Simulated scan of single mutants.
Amino acid sequence: MLALVAGFVNAIGLLGFNHQPISHLSGTATLIGTEIADGSLTHVFHLVMVVISFLVGAAISGFVLRSGALKLGRHYSKLLFIEALCLFAATYLLTQNSEYGLYLASAACGLQNAMVTTFSGAVIRTTHVTGIFTDLGIMIGAKFRGEVFDKRKATLFLLIISGFIAGGTLGATVFAIYQFKALLIPAMICLSLAISYSIYTAKAGHATNHK
C-alpha cells in the first residue's frame, strides 16, 4: 500500500510539474545539474528546495524512530498520520497554485522512505523501485550460480513493484479528471493506515499484557 501511495504521488508529480519526480531524488538531482548548466538559478532553487523537503521528511522519521528496526510500536502510526497531513496540505496548496505543495509532497515521500528503511533495516524502499529491481537481479544471478532462491523475499519485492506501478496507473487516471485534488486519495490511504496500525498495536499490546 505504501508503494502504491508513492507511485500515485510520483505520477502526479510527473504529470503536473514538468515531468518532475517527487518520490525519489535521482531525477531531481539530475535536473539540478542540467539547470545549473543552463544557468537557470530560479529553477535550481526550486529543485534544491524539493531535495531539502525530502531530507526534512526523512529527518522527521529519523527523530521519531529512535529505536532499532522491526519493533512494534505507535511511532509508525504517528509518522503515517504526519504523512497524511503533509499530503492533505499539499493538495490544498497545489490547488491554489502554490509550489509549497510540491515541497510538502516531497517531504511526505522522504518521511515514508525513511520510515520503511528503518523498519526493514535498510532492506526495503517503497518510494522508488531501482534498488528492488537491483536486488531481484542479484537474487536471479545467484540462483543461476546454484544458491537458494528466497521466494518469500522475491514475492515481497514483486508486490512492492506491482504496488508502485498500480499507484502510478491510478494516479495518472485520477489526475486526468481531478488534477491536484487526486492527492486526496493517497492522503486518505495514509490516514487509514495510521488508524489501522494504531488499532493493531493496541490489540497486540492488550494481548501481550494478558499473557
Rank of each mutant, 00 (worst) to 15 (best):
S53H: 05
L55E: 03
L25C: 02
T95K: 00
A6E: 03
T28V: 14
L80A: 14
A187M: 07
F8M: 01
F17G: 00
H46S: 10
G137H: 01
R74H: 09
K71P: 00
M139R: 13
F157D: 15
V116K: 12
E83L: 06
L65C: 08
K153D: 05
E99S: 12
G73D: 06
V129R: 06
A154V: 11
T118A: 15
L14S: 01
T30A: 11
H206F: 15
L159C: 11
T173R: 05
H75P: 10
A105K: 07
V123P: 06
H206T: 14
S53L: 05
V51M: 09
G73W: 03
G33F: 07
T155E: 15
M139V: 07
D38Q: 12
R66H: 08
S120Q: 02
G33N: 07
V44F: 02
I195R: 09
I60V: 15
H46G: 05
Y103R: 07
G141N: 10
L158E: 10
G13F: 11
V148I: 12
G167C: 10
T30E: 03
C109G: 10
V123T: 13
L14R: 10
L104N: 11
A182G: 12
G39H: 00
L2R: 09
H24K: 04
T155I: 15
I199D: 11
S120G: 02
T95W: 00
L70H: 13
G205H: 14
F149P: 04
A176E: 12
N113G: 09
C190S: 09
K203D: 08
L159W: 08
L136F: 09
A29G: 10
